[in-house]
Lab assay of single mutants.
Amino acid sequence: MEVRTIKVFTTVDNINLHTQVVDMSMTYGQQFGPTYLDGADVTKIKPHNSHEGKTFYVLPNDDTLRVEAFEYYHTTDPSFLGRYMSALNHTKKWKYPQVNGLTSIKWADNNCYLATALLTLQQIELKFNPPALQDAYYRARAGEAANFCALILAYCNKTVGELGDVRETMSYLFQHANLDSCKRVLNVVCKTCGQQQTTLKGVEAVMYMGTLSYEQFKKGVQIPCTCGKQATKYLVQQESPFVMMSAPPAQYELKHGTFTCASEYTGNYQCGHYKHITSKETLYCIDGALLTKSSEYKGPITDVFYKENSYTTTIK
Score class of each variant (00 low, 15 high):
Q175A: 10
S171M: 14
Y155E: 04
K92F: 04
I105D: 06
F80A: 02
P130L: 04
S25T: 14
V221P: 01
A69G: 06
H74C: 07
L153N: 05
F32V: 10
C225F: 00
A177Q: 00
N147Y: 10
G39L: 07
K191R: 10
N14R: 09
N14L: 08
Y297N: 03
R184P: 01
D63A: 11
I6K: 08
S181P: 04
T103P: 03
D165C: 15
A262N: 00
K92R: 13
N147L: 04
T192A: 11
L173Q: 01
W94A: 03
Q197D: 07
Q216I: 07
I15S: 09
G101A: 04
G53F: 11
V42E: 05
G53L: 13
M244F: 02
P248T: 09
T64I: 14
D13I: 07
A146G: 06
N16M: 08
S263H: 15
P224A: 12
V12D: 06
N16H: 14
D23F: 11
Y306F: 03
A140G: 04
T116L: 06
T159L: 09
S50V: 12
C227M: 00
N89T: 12
Y84K: 05
G143V: 02
N89A: 11
Y84M: 04
T10K: 13
F217E: 01
M170I: 09
A40V: 14
R141A: 09
I15F: 13
K307M: 13
I152T: 09
L212T: 06
V8H: 04
E125Q: 08
C193Q: 04
K275N: 04
Y155C: 04
S50N: 14
E168M: 10
A177G: 05
H74V: 03
F148L: 13
T27P: 12
T192N: 13
K218M: 03
E71G: 07
I15C: 10
G29R: 07
K280H: 10
T198H: 14
T64S: 12
G29Y: 09
S50R: 11
G53C: 11
P47F: 05
Y274N: 05
M85Y: 14
V189G: 02
Y138C: 14
L133V: 05
A250G: 13
P60T: 07
Q195P: 11
G101R: 04
D287V: 00
L119V: 05
K183D: 02
K7R: 13
P34V: 15
A132L: 03
C149D: 05
G257E: 11
R4N: 12
N89H: 12
K158F: 03
K316Y: 15
R4E: 13
Y96D: 02
D303K: 00
N49F: 13
G33S: 04
E168Q: 15
L163C: 15
Q270G: 14
L212P: 01
V166Q: 05
C182L: 04
K44L: 12
Q175T: 08
K229Q: 14
N129A: 10
Y297K: 01
A142C: 15
P248A: 09
D41H: 09
P34L: 11
W107E: 03
E253M: 11
P224R: 15
K7V: 09
T116D: 06
T64V: 13
Q20W: 09
N14C: 10
H48P: 12
K92N: 09
I286R: 00
C193F: 03
T43N: 08
D135T: 08
D303M: 03
Y269S: 15
Y36R: 05
L235D: 00
K183A: 07
A132R: 06
L126D: 04
V206F: 02
L133G: 04
G228M: 01
K54N: 14
N111C: 00
T199K: 08
D165N: 14
T91K: 05
I286D: 02
Y284M: 14
L114W: 00
H48T: 15
E239D: 12
E68M: 06
I15R: 10
I286V: 10
K46F: 11
N111F: 01
K233S: 13
F217R: 00
M245K: 00
L121P: 03
T120R: 01
K46A: 14
A69C: 14
D63I: 05
M245F: 15
F174E: 02
D165F: 07
D109A: 05
V67D: 12
G164V: 06
L17F: 11
N89K: 14
V185P: 02
S263F: 01
A69W: 06
S104W: 01
N111Q: 02
K218D: 04
L88I: 04
V166T: 03
Y84C: 08
T278Y: 15
L173Y: 03
Y73K: 05
Y252R: 01
L114I: 12
R4V: 13
I277R: 00
I315L: 15
H256L: 14
S213G: 02
L126S: 03
Q251L: 12
G33D: 02
S213I: 02
K93E: 11
R83W: 04
R167L: 04
A117L: 06
L290W: 13
Q30T: 13
M244N: 01
L153K: 05
N110R: 03
Q30F: 08
Y72Q: 09
M207E: 05
V243T: 01
N49H: 15
V12I: 11
T199F: 06
E308Y: 07
Y137N: 03
Q270A: 15
T35G: 06
Y172C: 10
S50C: 13
E162A: 09
F56P: 04
Y297M: 06
N16P: 06
L212Y: 00
S263W: 00
C261T: 02
P47Y: 04
A140M: 12
A146W: 07
K275G: 02
I15A: 06
L65F: 09
D62C: 12
F174Y: 03
K229E: 11
F217H: 03
Q30L: 13
A108R: 07
K93V: 10
P224I: 14
H18M: 06
P131C: 02
S171W: 15
F56D: 05
V58K: 07
D180T: 10
T211R: 04
N16C: 07
E264Y: 03
Y269D: 15
N187A: 11
T159D: 12
A262E: 00
I6P: 06
G228R: 03
Q195V: 15
R4T: 12
A132S: 06
T292C: 09
G272S: 00
G39D: 10
M209Y: 15
A150T: 02
E264A: 12
C227I: 02
L121Y: 02
A289L: 07
V203G: 06
D41F: 06
S50P: 10
I223M: 09
Y57C: 09
K201P: 04
E2G: 10
I315C: 12
S79E: 14
Q270D: 15
G299T: 00
T120D: 02
T278E: 03
L59I: 10
C261Y: 00
D41I: 11
F128S: 04
M170W: 04
S310K: 12
K293N: 11
H18C: 07
I286Q: 00
Q195W: 10
K46G: 10
T266P: 00
Y208H: 10
L121F: 07
W94S: 03
T5C: 14
